[in-house]
């Protein structure tokens, strides 16, 4: 399976979309060579603003540009955008303006940089904001489609979470992202694994292994965290009765929490959540960290089997 960088795809798409839409402007805070907005900056220097290490004014100014009719993209590392929570709340979401936050280096796949840079709370923080929608793409193909959709069909705030690492390409090249619609990568009748980001490919591997335990697992990509695909969650609860969630994020306030909310309101079912368990990250190779924090393929398998053990109680 080939892997591709989501942020490289973002940089590439910004240039493509920038050529087509002269009202696109991009802001960054001294991380443009890492977030890949620098490519846009080189091509369109008049529409690119490197605001320095000043995230607060970057976000407020993004609101001013959007209020003046621009389509605005804002990028930095996910962790540093969080210091502007209140700017996002008041200047972006309350004004309800056309600003897209496309952040990179989210989650533990930042690896060696360690806990200070590995944000696992961001999806929850952003999901709580009125007018904000939250997307965690699974691969470079979905990233491309998301960016086209956001540019061409939306005028409100979005948070798009990308990573430093390359992720396996799971979608066909002609895949079209549909907001709020999950994608079933593998059907199954005994158990549903809801995942997003890199955890979808982990979940597909886990599903293979669960088959050897006679468990037929469905794997669903919940790339839109907000608005969540309630229909798919209710369907999973009704048809498979058992659910595992897997995300490169805290088990609090990400898809784990969202799935629990939906099933408890609509169709109670067992849900086991996999993710960071109320803890900070750690330096290490990114792929080692998944095992360290019990978020590897084997851990998904274990959680899946636990659903059945509890069934017999």
């Amino acid at each position: 399976m080939t892997s591709e960088s989501l942020r490289e795809k973002y940089g590439e798409m910004l240039v493509k979309l920038g050529e087509k839409y002269p009202d696109i402007v991009v802001l960054d805070a001294d991380l443009s060579s890492s977030t890949k907005t620098a490519t846009f900056g080189k091509k369109f220097p008049d529409r690119f603003f490197n605001m320095g290490i000043s995230e607060q004014s970057m976000v407020s100014s993004a609101a001013g540009l959007a209020l003046s009719g621009k389509r605005v993209f804002v990028s930095t590392f996910a962790v540093f955008l969080m210091r502007t929570y209140e700017q996002i709340r008041q200047s972006i979401c309350y004004n309800n303006v056309n600003v897209k936050f496309v952040v990179t280096h989210a989650g533990i796949t930042v690896g060696e940089d360690g806990a200070t840079h590995q944000i696992v709370e961001d999806v929850g923080i952003m999901s709580g904001l009125p007018n904000m929608k939250v997307i965690v793409p699974v691969d470079s193909v979905e990233t491309k489609s998301v960016l086209e959709y956001l540019t061409e069909e939306t005028t409100t705030p979005y948070y798009v979470r990308l990573s430093r690492e390359k992720f396996p390409v799971l979608n066909e090249p002609d895949y079209k992202f549909k907001e709020g619609k999950s994608v079933t990568f593998r059907d199954g009748k005994d158990l549903t694994i809801f995942a997003n980001g890199v955890m979808v490919s982990y979940s597909l591997k886990a599903a293979e292994e669960l088959r050897t335990h006679a468990v037929d697992a469905r794997v669903v990509n919940l790339s839109t965290v907000k608005p969540i695909d309630r229909e798919a969650i209710i369907k999973a609860a009704r048809e498979t009765g058992k659910i595992v969630t897997a995300e490169e994020h805290s088990i609090y306030n990400g898809i784990g929490s969202r799935v629990c909310e939906v099933v408890s309101e609509e169709y109670p079912a067992i849900v086991k959540r996999l993710g960071m368990r109320d803890t900070f990250g750690k330096s290490g190779k990114s792929w080692e960290l998944f095992d360290y924090f019990h978020m590897g393929v084997q851990d998904i398998v274990k959680l899946g089997l636990e659903c059945f053990r509890e069934d017999k109680k």
């Binding site: 402007v25 008049d46 529409r47 603003f49 607060q56 004014s57 970057m58 976000v59 407020s60 100014s61 993004a62 609101a63 001013g64 540009l65 959007a66 209020l67 003046s68 009719g69 621009k70 209140e86 700017q87 709340r89 008041q90 200047s91 309350y94 004004n95």
Partner: peptide, 22 residues
């Protein structure tokens, strides 16, 4: 622009001025 949390409106104005320049 909506305002009320201090320190943000000046940044919003900077953004509007940038747009005017573009």
């Amino acid at each position: 622009s909506s305002t009320g949390s201090l320190g943000q409106g000046l940044g919003v104005a900077v953004g509007m001025a940038l747009a005017g320049k573009i």
